[in-house]
Design a protein around this nucleic acid. Structure first.
Lengths: 367, 367
DNA sequence: CGTTTGGTTGAATCATAAC
DNA sequence: CGTTATGATTCAACCAAAC
């Protein structure tokens, strides 16, 4: 899996997690060699005292040393340094994603502009299940903000418009994304059973970022690698990753995690480019949320099969397209409701995919 | 309707629209005299050329002179000046709302922090009907960002938690608000039938802001008044407004608009309040009034018991003190609300002692 | 085995009046 | 001003145990 790309004198260590401070490491890597950077830096939360829930339990806050800065000036200096090192690494048509909260995102956004990055969108991750405001003193902090920017104004950045549109019921993707926070089995635990990292991001978020703004084979670098969500999703989607992480415990967890990830096959990774492909339902969301996996086979009541692709389309023996199109073709029918036609296997039984849609709808209703 | 508030030498011109540059005007008004500022400054859009829809019609872009700045530095200087003038105007417990897009909001947010404002929330206005991205080159820009900040860290800002919770079907209000953009009858037209202002904000947005973060009678200032949405909603909700606007055409439209607005009656303006705003009642008063008798046993939901003493304290097996102290001790909790924790028996049923406090408060209101 | 219930938790700048 | 005491406050998701 590990390989390198030679860029003149220095090699680019692909699909590895580099130990060290991200600024120093980035400065040591060859310039103009990376297609996309995804960065989830410390938020500088500035929490004051303890916080208890109404039931008197204590909230496990982010109080790690790596999130502490002495002042806005110190945080700005840090931001300036890592962003300029990142810019140097990007190819001319490369792009960057950063994520943050109101504590730090305004400073990151301003510095991106100061350094000549060109903001393409700010994107709101609307959390379907945020932590409430326990004291009733403010609004529930229910979102985080991502900024997507190209290296320079006028850059020919990558944007898979049709793939994201397919993920969004055939309607063009908006700048607000409703996704659950990372919990349950996806949330990595340490040996003691506690969360391995206080701020692990959901794979669904990275799925959308990487699918939408890179091509297969692109190099994706994450300078604040943590537990390696970026690397795991990049590997699934057939992209090359480079992680930088200075905490040994995080590196260890990330390495093991990514080793267990299987790359989806090429058919599954291919995204829609046809303007005709306009699925009328958000089948792609099931894939994005991990309810169905790219490469997984769906079955019809009469035994026809088709394979799930990462952008929410299907591929059969001699046909590809939406769940409805593929179903109609296999049945020789003018139309077909893919939601009731296609089934997946769970515990030996065949279950219609419509069941999964109902689950998603239930979650969406709650917003 | 027009009136003034004297603050020493200079009068505060309430419910008027002041002609002039907002920085100069704000500097001329008395300091620490305003409860809330709502600011919708120029976004510095940096548009590059005309944009046409797929049907070749031309998009009517924001290309007004007031939105043009020569550089980020010029925009930052402008932001610094109007924000510092605004901060001077705010009462110690005052607060500010600003709204912007990714073009300017990061610079505003950073400058708010630089000047010592304390960010309380960033709020996403998620547009239910945004303009699509006609070129398919980016995500649909479907939201704008508001920042809510108090004048200083530690300020006792106004937040009508219960009112916003009621607006949200009984669930606490989140930081993402889904509201339609301003269209239809609400969208003001000029004499030629064109939109009177390119960026008129919906009244629903200001309704939520003003209802949630001011009290009736508070002074709300808008330094970029435009067509006066802030003034119109402030008047409806029984708040005093001050508008500053340098364009005569906007002032004229705003004045006429607000004259036609009727204030809601007092009952409609009153909002749900929290228990915190209710007068404090000493537990001993219940004993004093014979609602509970010394020697009577109180019971917790989980079966703990304590005895009422004549001085309004409780005594348990190995602890005595206030209803809160004894409850906290018996539960091993850092704190405990004795009013909801302790119950007395009436007709065989367990009733929380908070019911008795409500009776006392009802009697107090009648006097 | 399916369903219900109870417990836990998540990037959080989370109190205030009285003394 | 600091200290002490009162007392207000939660939503969705997941999981394990109970039924």
């Amino acid at each position: 899996m590990t390989k390198t790309k030679d860029r003149g004198a220095v090699a680019l260590p692909l699909n590895t997690i580099i130990d060290g401070d991200c600024i120093e490491v980035m400065r040591s890597l060859p310039e103009a060699s990376v297609d996309l950077i995804f960065a989830d830096p410390p938020y500088n939360l500035q929490l004051r005292g303890d916080l208890h829930r109404p039931d008197n339990s204590l909230v496990d806050a982010v109080d790690d040393a790596w999130d502490q800065f002495s002042s806005f000036e110190a945080y700005d200096r840090f931001t300036r340094d890592w962003l300029s090192a990142a810019k140097r690494l990007l190819k001319p048509n490369g792009a960057i994603w950063v994520i943050g909260s109101y504590h730090n995102v305004f400073r990151m956004g301003a510095e991106l502009q100061n350094q000549g990055f060109w903001i393409l969108n700010d994107v709101v991750w609307r959390k379907s299940n945020p932590m409430p405001n326990f004291r009733g003193k403010r609004l529930t902090n229910a979102h985080e903000t991502l900024i997507w920017a190209s290296r320079d104004e006028g850059a020919k950045y990558t944007f898979n418009y049709e793939a994201l549109k397919a993920l969004n019921e055939g309607i063009q993707m908006r700048s607000d994304w409703v996704l659950p926070i990372c919990t349950g089995h996806e949330r990595l635990k340490d040996d003691a059973g506690d969360k391995a990292h206080p701020t692990q991001k959901p794979e669904s978020l990275l799925h959308r970022v990487i699918l939408g703004t890179t091509n297969a084979g692109d190099v994706v670098l994450d300078p604040f690698f943590g537990t390696g969500t970026t690397g795991a999703v990049a590997k699934m989607l057939g992209r090359e990753y480079i992680g930088i992480e200075r905490e040994e415990a995080y590196r260890k967890v990330a390495k093991k995690r990514i080793e267990n990830v299987r790359k989806f096959d090429s058919d599954s990774i291919a995204v829609s480019t046809s303007k005709r492909a306009e699925p009328r339902v958000a089948f792609g969301v099931l894939v994005e949320r991990g309810m169905l996996r790219p490469g997984e086979m769906l079955v019809s009541p009469r035994g026809k099969t088709a394979k799930v692709r990462a952008d929410g389309t299907l591929i059969g023996d001699d046909v590809k397209g939406s769940i409805h199109q593929v179903g109609a073709h296999l049945e020789g029918a003018p139309s077909c409701n893919g939601w009731t036609y296609w089934h997946f296997k769970r515990d030996g039984k065949q279950v219609p995919i419509d069941l999964l849609r109902q689950q998603v709808r239930a979650e969406m209703r709650e917003n």
